[in-house]
Design a binder for these strands. Structure first.
Lengths: 221, 221, 221, 221
DNA sequence: CATGAATGAGCCTTCATTCAT
DNA sequence: CATGAATGAAGGCTCATTCAT
């Protein structure tokens, strides 16, 4: 009852195994269709273990989100490989590349993305936390870059819209992955392709933003 | 048994009421969480009525998709208000505007979008039909416009990527609507805002595509 | 409401068609598993027709029993082809032959047997009628023959037991037909085989009864 | 999941209680009409317990058959009280007596008979197993005795027919028990009566078989 | 008379959760 | 700590029957 948080070390195997199994099952089937029994079976633990260690299916799900978020951002932080003072162009490219890789890989890092993509469509009680602790910071991070790229004083709405344009292009490949697999069955999503996608999005967006900057200057005159 | 057609007007009641109620419930809760009892209760019909009129929860869902698709595309076709011979710029703007309105409105037209957005994340047995009968035609429609905008012989992949960029920006406002509502609670999505969104996406995309066209010409030389 | 009985002539087709279809379905699936929809579908009538013409599934079943009994006994009466004054041996042979043919054929005459065989195991509300109007008369008919064969004054129980022995051998091929089909898949039940079966049962029984008669005489001395 | 064996004594309760209750309900009402709710109510367990212990109503039924077969044959084996070298006459009498007692008693031993008698009329998916594991061995066992009684080389068909004659007389009292109860309401089926029945069947059959043996010898000369 | 539509009861099953060991 | 067993709620579906035309 009091050990829901932070007792990562108490039982070396069980809790961790449940988290891993649950992350996969939740990512594959969603919260609703995922069954406790399936998770326990994959984790080779008793059904009661979940209620013991996590109280709830719901609470387990929340813990899984934390767990998988850590996994994802440890490997692919927003500013992966950037240095202070890098140009906003570079920072944007890095942001996009990092987001795409974090989302599309088939390593455990992608679990978080798949879980969150479900939250977009069918928010659970965990949604608020995700919004505040993941989406808003990400949005803020990107807004700063976009702001610099647009230059000067730009209506906040403009920045927001451009942020949306950038992020939407990245998430699309997560959001629409099943559709894309049907539409273009031959298309692979290996490292090379992910880089190409990131490059396209970055190029596409930079072109648009630069043009926008010019237009706005013209309007301001 | 086979009277899906023909008695559209003969029985103004039950079947139609079930379809409407089901569309809402499926859109709100998804196929899995939606219960036939809830649907029937909203439609004020007996549970057995679903079995009688639609045989299955699953088959009802399929009929709901057909029904809501018709609703959506009757009001907002791809080429809403376009004329033959319109420039690709105009056709792109119209396509985007039509898509955004079809997706974001409050009216029943948006039901199809919300249903399909769930299919993106958690495909059901109806997914293949949606892909072939809705997504692929839409993609093809857009590809032609983009192809013209890019001009000349362009690698198919380029066109695909640009299509993805355009569509992703539109769908984002569907896909991320719950998140956006949390991130920017004050933001409304009335007619004016939808037009503004469509304008932004169109401007953003046209800038990028034109730049891309220039760049490619340069490369070709 | 008032026309449940005897309105065989009112609707030439419907009622008769329902009876035929119902007889087959009840014989194939039993009262419980048989569904009115299946019956109506086979009879090409509306589901409500049954309730209209027969009030009940149960009442329909009772009517089916009457109908099929008539069918069976019209073709194979107990004393088929016998003449007054025939010896009890001959009358027994005829009785057995008639019973076996009535039960085992694949013409509609066998419907009654198959229906009744279910009643043996799972009596319905129609059981009492069957017992009194079919079984008891049959038993009485056979008892007289057996009585003559045993001769003189024999304990009623003796007669009963011998009747049981004779009848049981006949019914066995109805009762156990599915089992026999599995045990001896190659075995056919055409006219020839049915005659052979009847001959065996008659021979077997006559031998036993004659021996019994001798034994009893010995005992009486 | 696979603990059908081994914990026969460990849990004296639930599983066993379900088996007993289910055996009675299935015997009384048949597979179709029997409801899991009725079974669980009699066994004083939750409806979900059946799913937990037996997965299915159908699988429960199969387990009930195994369970009741064991019960029946443990108490009344085919060769109850026989010794090696006993004459075929004695072995036939014992076989018949054993079969009659196994089938007609009030004790739980009769459950198997009642269950199987339903399978004769309305085979379920368990039928094949019953045929192969119960009927065929029984038939083979009896065939050997009959073969000896008929002596020398007899056409297989003859043996089969005599087996059928013997078995049919025994099963008749199971098959027709409801009918007999109506036809002869005063008749009891206590131990004495069962012995009398067995004696009659044995005497009747032995007479017939001996006579048949003589006749066939005559034919062969 | 006949029909399509509608009803309500009931059934089997599944699932997350809890209890007793 | 961990486990097997047990629970109650809920869900989808089927069926015989009735209603209104």
């Amino acid at each position: 009852m009091k050990k829901n948080h932070q007792n990562v070390e108490s039982t070396p195997g069980t809790r961790e195994r449940i988290l891993q199994a649950a992350a996969e099952v939740f990512a594959d089937s969603g919260f609703e269709r995922a069954t406790v029994r399936e998770i326990c079976s994959r984790a080779s633990v008793n059904v009661a273990a979940i209620n013991y260690h996590f109280r709830d299916k719901e609470n387990l799900y929340i813990e899984v989100l934390k767990y998988s978020k850590e996994l994802a951002f440890k490997k692919y932080p927003h500013d992966l490989g950037t240095q202070k003072g890098d140009s906003p162009e570079i920072r944007l490219r890095v942001f996009i590349r990092s987001l795409v890789l974090r989302i599309l890989g088939d390593d455990p890092s992608s679990l978080f993305g798949r879980l969150v993509s479900r939250e977009y469509i069918e928010p659970t009680s965990a949604f608020d936390v995700i919004v505040e602790e993941t989406m808003r910071p990400t949005f803020a991070f990107l807004s700063e870059i976009i702001g610099e790229l647009l230059g000067g004083k730009v209506p906040a709405m403009r920045v927001h819209m451009c942020c949306a344009s950038v992020i939407s292009q990245c998430l699309f490949f997560l959001y629409a992955r099943h559709a894309l697999a049907k539409l273009f069955p031959e298309q692979k999503f290996g490292r090379t392709e992910m880089e190409a996608i990131a490059d396209h999005i970055a190029g596409f967006s930079l072109s648009a933003i630069k043009d926008l900057r010019k237009t706005m200057k013209g309007e301001r005159k």
